[in-house]
Amino acid sequence: MTSPHPGPKSVRTVDTDSDKGKTDGKSMLRQKDRERYQRQIGLPEIGEQGQKRLGRSRVLLAGLGGLGSVLAASLCAAGVGFLRIADRDRVELSNLNRQILHWTADIGREKTVSAGEKLAAFNPEVVLEPRQIAIAEDTVQELLRDCQIIVDGTDNLESRRVLNRASLKTGLPFIHGGINGFNGMLSTFIPGRTPCFECLFSEFGGGSGCPSVLGATAGIVGSLQSLEALKYLLGMHAELLTGRLLIVQGRSMTFRKIRLEPNPACPECG
């Protein structure tokens, strides 16, 4: 091999179907899956069928920073079938107060490699596809290919604008979250059913560069986003955080939902 192949590569040894059961909805979970996911299969909202549904689900996670670390870990632990993780950055020392998938020995490594290693060890049942690439207009369609949902682990407005446009174009839901200091906000945007990200934020500027943020805040907001993603993937569509922006204020421990109406002046969906 002379040139490294830039395309997608999946890290995990693929199980043969003989061990896996068919995917026709009536088949049984494998015994090891039944045991691994026992404590969530017991939930009436999940059960064996829901677990199998999660096992067939395909997710794009954009960004592997503070939110992305938490999102990746919790989606993997819950047993999503396929997780494409995209980020263009390398691990820096100043990331480590909040980006819990990256450890001290990872400084200088590509975030997708650092995260991919931990996630593969965490739950080898999940098919991971690390993509060390920027979230941009010319990459996003390919990043979304065959995914059911877009999960926002990015740290800037521009990437979110790209993801929002891709969501509107494909009809895929966009599970948005953002954090700053002790605070965060999140909403689930579903094209045709809710306002979009730009309805809310099209008039906002580039943001303030690198906000200060606590890992605990990333943990709260990332966990809430992953709960939304899992509910969507399980088909619990009536109870999503749609048409609402949840404002999380960590200092006062206030969680408040703001109602969102369609914005007729939205440059993207209006």
Binding site: R160, G178, G184
Partner: peptide
């Protein structure tokens, strides 16, 4: 009046 949070 709420400051939006765009970090991640």
């Amino acid at each position: 009046f709420i400051n939006p949070n765009f970090g991640g």
